[in-house]
Nucleic acid binder design. Structure first.
Lengths: 204, 204
DNA sequence: GTCTATACCATGATAGAC
DNA sequence: GTCTATCATGGTATAGAC
């Protein structure tokens, strides 16, 4: 509290506003000028807080996903059986992603990143613990399945719908109720639990 | 054949090389200079063949996905039962995506496109028929499920693994055999068919 | 059809004043 | 800590010669 707000507080403010910008337009789509405007500073001032644009970006993504990992981990801890843990994780995750679209888009930009160095930094600072958490869950959930593939499958079923939401709005036969996280959550759990054998009970 | 090659051939050549560039770096990441270099022309010459950069981009994406739709439709026609059609589609799709990574990345860029006009053009010129094809299949496959959500689920299980492949390479516990489209294909079909109830037979 | 040349604007990053 | 000022680079698109 030396001047007005601490250096750390300013850093976090920059990170939080950067997240929204990077989520919208990706690394290349956001200029230091854009960030500067969003935090009411000049571009030069940003270089006092962060070494360069890449450092700012990686820190912002890690900052955004630290909370996600924590929430999912406690969702698992709060449930008793593996199936209940699945329901809990899927329910909590869909709710988070529906509420915070930035998370979805940040992940999308990361997946598309073609800078190998940056991608490695992102993987190890933002996503490794999250991946391991799901990996451990599916190991108990479906011991007969390849755990890595299963992890990706579950992740995909939860995340992908949010990724295509905006695009599907322009396709024929789109129903807006599918945007409801609770509807998606039930669909995913049921599909995973029953597969096609449960296709003709009426709980749609 | 008036001069050396027909105007149409040149257009297709530009489209094919553009696809690779746009797949790598997206709309904003590719300059008209880049395209010009790739086709051994000058930027100004491109503006003779395409009205502007956006026209070139939309045409390139539509050009890339015209073939995909055709291949998947015949994969469905060649199989008798809905389940066989599922196996056929998933098998063919995984093989295509594994062989042609540009398709995966192009879709990723489209999903992230935040220009609504351009997104609508892309949806209606490149993806609507593909979406309807899968939608029709899942209607027969699992009549008890919400067909739109089911379409997205299947698509996600097939496409998402290719999207995260590069990122997962930096995560702990990664196994490179998961990159095999045949392995992925079997995993997806089995998970859809049996769900968690089939988790402990040994056909991993 | 393709070229050269150019108008005009945005970018990341830095130097040095305060 | 934050500013102003600046630089080199690279973006889309067009005009007009050939």
């Amino acid at each position: 509290m030396s001047k007005s707000v601490s250096k750390k507080k300013i850093r976090e403010q920059i990170l939080e506003r950067s997240i929204r910008l990077f989520a919208k337009a990706g690394y290349d789509g956001v200029s230091m000028r854009d960030v500067a405007v969003a935090v009411a500073l000049t571009p030069a001032a940003l270089y006092y807080h962060f070494a360069d644009k890449e450092q700012l970006y990686v820190d912002a993504v890690a900052y955004a996903f630290r909370e996600v990992t924590g929430v999912l981990k406690s969702a698992i801890e709060d449930a008793a059986t593996p199936l209940a843990q699945l329901e809990s994780v899927v329910g909590v995750a869909t709710k988070m992603l529906a509420k915070n679209k930035s998370l979805v888009r940040l992940m999308q930009w990361v997946k598309l990143d073609s800078d190998r160095q940056r991608l490695q930094k992102l993987g190890t600072t933002a996503f490794d613990e999250l991946f391991l958490t799901i990996h451990k869950l599916v190991g108990k959930l479906g011991p007969g399945y390849n755990a890595s593939l299963f992890t990706v499958s579950i992740t995909s079923m939860v995340v992908f719908p949010f990724e295509v939401m905006d695009t599907c709005r322009f396709l024929p036969g789109y129903e807006s109720k599918n945007d409801d996280p609770a509807v998606l959550s039930r669909h995913v759990v049921r599909l995973l639990h029953q597969g096609l054998s449960g296709a003709d009970d009426g709980s749609q």
